[in-house]
Nucleic acid binder design. Sequence first.
DNA 1: GTCTATACAATGATAGAC
DNA 2: GTCTATCATTGTATAGAC
Lengths: 225, 225
Amino acid sequence: MRLNQTFVSDATGTRDRILDAAERLFAEQGFYITTLREITHAASVNLAAVNYHFGSKQALVIAVFRRRLDELNTERLTRLDQAFAKQTPPVLEDVLDAFVYPALALMGDGHAGGHRFMQLLMRAYADPDEALHGAIREEYGYIMRRFADALIEAASSEHDAKPSWPADQIRQQLDFLVGALTYTMADAKLKHPRATASALVRFAAAGIRGVSQTKYATDFKEELS
Amino acid sequence: MRLNQTFVSDATGTRDRILDAAERLFAEQGFYITTLREITHAASVNLAAVNYHFGSKQALVIAVFRRRLDELNTERLTRLDQAFAKQTPPVLEDVLDAFVYPALALMGDGHAGGHRFMQLLMRAYADPDEALHGAIREEYGYIMRRFADALIEAASSEHDAKPSWPADQIRQQLDFLVGALTYTMADAKLKHPRATASALVRFAAAGIRGVSQTKYATDFKEELS
DNA sequence: GTCTATACAATGATAGAC
DNA sequence: GTCTATCATTGTATAGAC
């Protein structure tokens, strides 16, 4: 597959040029405002080429997304492995670092491209498009399982007596972290991304450690809806 | 102001009918997919009525938003006052409850309208539209200040000796909470909203309490970007 | 002041020639 | 694989009726 590169064609293929242009424009302006004509003009290709290569604008969005998300999550897994190599079971903060830091690394030092990608990610979460949702979930499913397992190991090892950490609770707390990370990093006015990421790791670690020890229970009237 | 109700007109005014229809359709489908023709058809008004009453589709989005957000934040302030009435300085969990619970209350028991409003809120955060951003910030600014102050009071009172809680840190942690709340509640597959909200309050309380005591410091290479 | 009918430029998408 | 031509639909603007 993917042999659609002709010998007499341009330096880079049409498909890749579309992806690059779309990524930049989506980041700058958002999905809907950006028109296919803008993209194809910036990529110096014909308007119909988008529909030929990707099928629709929606599919192009997903393709752009998948590429970056792959990169982000690969980096996360690498760092997770390093955390385990350093110590097994790993330190809780190291696991959280492995999840948070790569998102930060996308913030290309002053280029401010990172904020925009986080905004894109947030847009994808909030988007009513189910196909886009599905693609994200698919891309994230494995990562979330790996990190949830790692967090359970790390947290459980701190409590000598306790047999195991409630898995559902950890998964829920990982969701809290994803929300906090995405929301905070998407903020265009964020001043010190590194300090913020560091604070988030400490906050999440304290939250995970503290919940099991908390005596105070905030019970809403009914527990199940 | 707002006396645009004629005696021979329909039961409800044109303006309100547009708002109601737009709110429902935006929630179901999102901002961009929903057309003005859909809205005006559902509201049984003329297409041009939208531009007459609101000026643009963008302005309509903001108007729909402001109405619900007002309601949400008023309820939050009421509960915050109750927390202070019960005990001053208030209990940390009570303050967090006052912020989290009203978002939950929007989830009209089975009607599932709450998830959708939270999705709408997330969409608004992620939207590249600066006018919408500005309207949200304006609506939220006062609330965030009030809750940040309350959290500082609550947290500081727990540490007898320590003079005051770092204000910037609390504000940052409040942002973490907003992100986690919005992301989690927007999830369409959320099973037990009440239990989740309760867990979030405990998580955030532990996070806030724990950070100051944490010895482990996750320092990224450089602290300032 | 409110509302309606209508027109307009720009959009995503598609068919068919090359 | 690529391009030109064309389509229905979109948000918006305007002129004029009540």
